[in-house]
Amino acid sequence: MKALFLNCSLKTSDEPSNTDALYKEAEAIFDKEGVETESVRLADYKIAYGISDDEGNGDEWPAIFEKVKAADIVVLGTPLWLGEKSSIATLAIERLYGGSGLTNDLGQSLYYNKVGGVVITGNEDGAKHAAASVLYGFSHIGITVPPNVDAYWVGEAGPGDSYIEANGQKNDFATGHAKTMAHNLVHFARIFCDNPIPAKGNTME
């Protein structure tokens, strides 16, 4: 099985990501369970605005989309800004939505039999709101959302340290949720590998 982490930090990969640091707790579980993992920092790429799977003119989303199609588990990670998921996270959801008209061999949404979760960090409120937005987006396009697949850490309101600087890895609630998320995602992904969703009643033809 393969797990793909779409890191929607506004920072490129030459800078540390708090969201990535929390995701590492889940990644460790994936590794133990024999799940191949890959992390993509979307800020490193030129991703066009739009709601198709390829916007052309140098759009680098199609290469990322190939990784999504190959994944059994998709985890989106985002920081919080003004209590909302990042602009890149919104862009990622829009581009995923752009591929929702594509189908598998049974005529179902291409995202059927994939499972998804979300990782959020920030130093202000909004984690549950952002999680709800991301997970609804996943469910709407056909990605299955198992229970307890939102892992988050937030610090005090206003400017301040975020996950890494505040030693968030010592927060049992945040790290515990990341581990629960990973276990539940792996369990449901294995179910779908052995027993995919039947095509009856949910094809797009």
Results as ranks from 00 to 15, higher is better:
Val154Asp: 01
Ile64Phe: 14
Tyr152Thr: 06
Tyr49Asn: 14
Pro146Leu: 06
Gly176Val: 02
Gly176Pro: 04
Ser87Ala: 14
Tyr45Pro: 01
Asp53Gly: 02
Ser87Val: 01
Lys11Ile: 00
Gly201Met: 02
Gly176Met: 08
Ile29Tyr: 03
Leu4Trp: 05
Ser39Glu: 00
Glu94Gly: 00
Glu94Met: 06
Glu165Cys: 04
Gly168Glu: 06
Leu76Tyr: 03
Asn113His: 04
Glu55Met: 15
Asn104Gly: 09
Phe5Trp: 02
Ile164Ser: 05
Ile143Leu: 10
Lys128Asp: 14
Gly99Thr: 10
Leu106Tyr: 11
Asp105Thr: 02
Asn195Ala: 13
Phe30Gly: 04
Glu38Cys: 08
Thr175Gly: 05
Pro62Glu: 11
Glu205Trp: 00
Asp125Thr: 09
Lys128Met: 09
Arg41Ser: 12
Lys170Val: 00
Asn184Glu: 12
Ile197Gln: 15
Lys11Pro: 01
Phe173Cys: 01
Ser13Leu: 04
Thr180Ala: 07
Cys193Met: 10
His177Trp: 08
Tyr49Asp: 14
Gly98Trp: 15
Thr175Asn: 02
Glu27Asn: 05
Ala166Met: 10
Leu22Glu: 11
Gly160Phe: 01
Asp14His: 08
Gly168Ala: 07
Glu66Pro: 01
Gly126Ala: 06
Asp59Val: 10
Ala70Ile: 10
Gly101Ala: 06
Glu165Arg: 09
Arg41Met: 13
Gly56Phe: 14
Glu33Ser: 09
Ala199Cys: 07
His140Cys: 03
Asp105Met: 03
Ala151Ser: 06
Asp172Glu: 15
Asn202Asp: 06
Asn123Glu: 10
Cys193Leu: 05
Ser100Leu: 03
Asn123Ser: 15
Thr90Val: 03
Lys114Asp: 14
Thr121His: 03
Gly101Tyr: 15
Tyr112Lys: 13
Gly58Asn: 07
Asn195Lys: 15
Asp161Leu: 11
Glu60Asp: 12
Asp161Gly: 11
Ser39Lys: 10
Gly142Phe: 11
Leu135Asn: 01
Asn171Gln: 12
Tyr163His: 03
Gly56Tyr: 14
Leu135His: 01
Ser109Asn: 07
Ile141Val: 10
Asp105Val: 02
Val115Gly: 12
Gly101Trp: 13
Lys128Pro: 00
Ala182Phe: 06
Asp14Gly: 04
Met1His: 06
Phe65Gln: 13
Thr103Asp: 05
Gly160Thr: 02
Asp172Met: 05
Gly99Pro: 04
His187Tyr: 09
Val149Gln: 11
Lys24Tyr: 02
Val68Phe: 09
Gly99Ile: 15
Glu124Asp: 12
Trp153Gly: 11
His187Ile: 00
Ile73His: 04
Thr37His: 01
Gly117Tyr: 06
Thr144Arg: 05
Val68Ser: 11
Ala199Val: 00
Arg190His: 12
Phe188Asn: 08
Lys179Thr: 04
Tyr112Glu: 09
Ile143Ser: 11
Lys85Trp: 03
Lys170Met: 09
Asn113Leu: 08
Ala43Tyr: 02
Ser39Thr: 08
Pro146Lys: 13
Lys46Arg: 14
Phe192Asn: 03
Asn7Leu: 13
Val115His: 11
Glu15Met: 09
Thr19Gln: 03
His183Tyr: 13
Pro159Lys: 15
